[in-house]
Nucleic acid binder design. Structure first.
Lengths: 342, 342
DNA sequence: GTTAGCACTCTTATGCAACGAGTGCTAATT
DNA sequence: AATTAGCACTCGTTGCATAAGAGTGCTAAC
């Protein structure tokens, strides 16, 4: 374990490097430190810290930079989540106070807010139908052979898709079918719906309308509406501000990743328990983000839905500040979401 | 006007520069040309072309590169839209042949296809409700004070939003109200709906249910669902492959632009008449894309909806190839869309 | 245990020369 | 009159050596 002075110096190095993105030398630390110690002493300590793996040297005569282990120690023991500033509060208030009358808008807006507060790229993932219940099923006929199938959940989420109607079924019958389905299934958990729907509904189906051979196919189409989870991005180009991403080779993997929503989804999804999680460099399995750190906060709202907000930046990231913001945001976010949901 | 040889040489320069991204020298042109002329002759002609503004010199002793005027002449007179290859056709077929059962998927997929065929960033804009007609209005109650308002157009597009229901109105009454609205307004043009709805519906409203003071407010909320136009992107990171965008300063304006969907929408929207339009460098008013060219193709489908596909690349763009692809795509795209709509 | 001093290392910046690609001009050729 | 060969000239690029600067590691002194 690190002693007092070692911790203090490690903290100074990490802070300074986060600010400047330049290797930190012993003289700088000596000047910044409140303890009155000479650069030479600092050098000895820094040498120890390097030996223990908390610091690294880009080359023999440069200053030190934090290793991933160093960042990890900093995040776990040294930093204090920074409270957000008065103006940050104002920004959040302002945006959340607008009536956001649609779930999607809340999520999208949140991505923007987080990105503009942190100056990093943000990724917001809403598990839209995780534990939502079915509220309504309907089919709106458009022509003799097509219609729009609608599934509304009790959280206000709507899924729709154009379906083709088998020629042996009339649009009116389809609507009747939808109505029965709606009454029967109202209140069912969405994920239960997906898993158990087939046996159950098939039985009902044959009871009410055994003449519809093509109906199962239709039903199948409706349920394929699988409450896809969506990923929202904010501030994609913030990464361009970071000195470590000034070359295209560094940039490409990150930008490619941001374009691939499936991978992003996978990246953000795991955490079961709510709270803030910090992944530094290689702690994340994705090679694309080996030079990045990812801070994710997962919020449970109403104890039912979970939301995950991710902030992606260089390993040299303002951990304290970002975590402070994510902590604060929890409140405003929950309020906005439950206002919409309720 | 340029004579035969000048045109031929201009074409060679543009072709070669598009391929190599390097200034083209007289010797190169001489070798590539079918005419048997010496580099010196070529130099004279290139010098003339430069004087006329079709070519430029980055510095005194480099080869020539096309000016925007040069690209313009090339696009207007010299190039032949390149037919797409057998494998391109296969790609398009394969993707369009999958059942794309939702409008949005068609558009999104198209963006991907265009980008992967052209190797440039693509922007697809669907004027979703341009001339669509209202097919159905509904309100699904979620609780005593909230519900989901749905508007379905005859093209199968669905708009939804969570609305709050005034306390003096019961959910059942809201549904009744929605049903009346739906019957009354079915078949109305969406844009007419927006502009004329208020006078007309207000009259109906008071006739059927003058007790609802808060109903207008509700209606207002529903109609605010304004069939927003969406922009879809494909291959955002393709721009990273271009040698002229290897520095962050060059990259930033373009990536920023791609993130700003409103501006993108504005960028693509103008053309009234269908067909392919080429904007080279400063021909576009947006400073962000002063180093880019934009090729847009606008398709009218069923004579009702219009779609715009844009391809964004460096001014040194494979105009002939991209235009060829966009021409071909028109067919597959129209077919896929009308299959969904019908 | 701490500090001062100094040699050493490594990176970055700078200047300079050599090189090469390509032009422009002139004179010769067709 | 148009074309071409030849040649001097320009300008950017590359390679290399040198200088400067930042920072370390080590030793000896405090």
């Amino acid at each position: 374990m690190l002693n007092e002075r070692e911790q203090s110096i490690l903290r100074l190095v990490v802070d300074d490097y986060i600010r400047s993105a330049e290797p930190v030398g012993s003289r700088t630390v000596s000047k910044r430190s409140t303890m009155q110690v000479s650069p030479a002493t600092i050098r000895n300590v820094m040498s120890d810290l390097e030996e223990m793996g908390y610091l690294e040297q880009p080359h023999t005569s440069a200053g030190r930079i934090p290793s991933e282990k160093g960042y990890r120690f900093y995040v776990d023991h040294l930093m204090m989540p920074v409270g957000i500033t008065r103006s940050d509060v104002a920004t959040v208030r302002e945006i959340f106070l607008q009536i956001m009358d649609q779930m999607e808008q809340v999520v999208q807006q949140t991505a923007q807010i987080v990105s503009s507060l942190t100056n990093y790229t943000s990724i917001v993932l809403g598990s839209l139908t995780e534990t939502a219940k079915l509220a309504h099923v309907d089919v709106i006929p458009l022509s003799e052979t097509s219609g729009v199938a609608l599934i509304v959940t009790d959280s206000g989420h709507v899924e729709n898709r154009v379906i083709s109607i088998p020629p042996e079924i009339s649009p009116a019958e389809v609507q009747k079918f939808a109505r029965i389905l709606s009454d029967k299934l109202k209140g069912t958990d969405m994920h239960r719906l997906k898993s158990e729907l087939f046996q159950e509904v098939q039985r009902e189906l044959t009871r009410y309308m055994d003449e519809f051979s093509g109906a199962m196919q239709l039903l199948n189409q409706i349920v394929k509406t699988d409450g896809e989870e969506r990923v929202y991005l904010g501030g994609t180009t913030k990464i361009l501000n970071q000195p470590e991403f000034q070359t295209v080779e560094k940039l490409r993997p990150v930008l490619d990743l941001l374009e691939n929503h499936d991978t992003l989804f996978h990246l953000l999804s795991p955490p079961d328990k709510p709270g803030v999680r910090v992944q530094i460099g290689h702690e994340n399995e994705l090679v694309e983000v080996r030079d990045c750190s990812l801070i994710t906060a997962t919020y449970a709202i109403d104890g039912r839905k979970t939301w995950t907000i991710g902030v992606l930046g260089p390993t040299r990231m303002e951990y304290a500040r970002v975590i402070g913001i994510l902590n604060y945001l929890n409140e405003g976010f929950s309020a906005a979401v439950s206002r919409v949901v309720k």
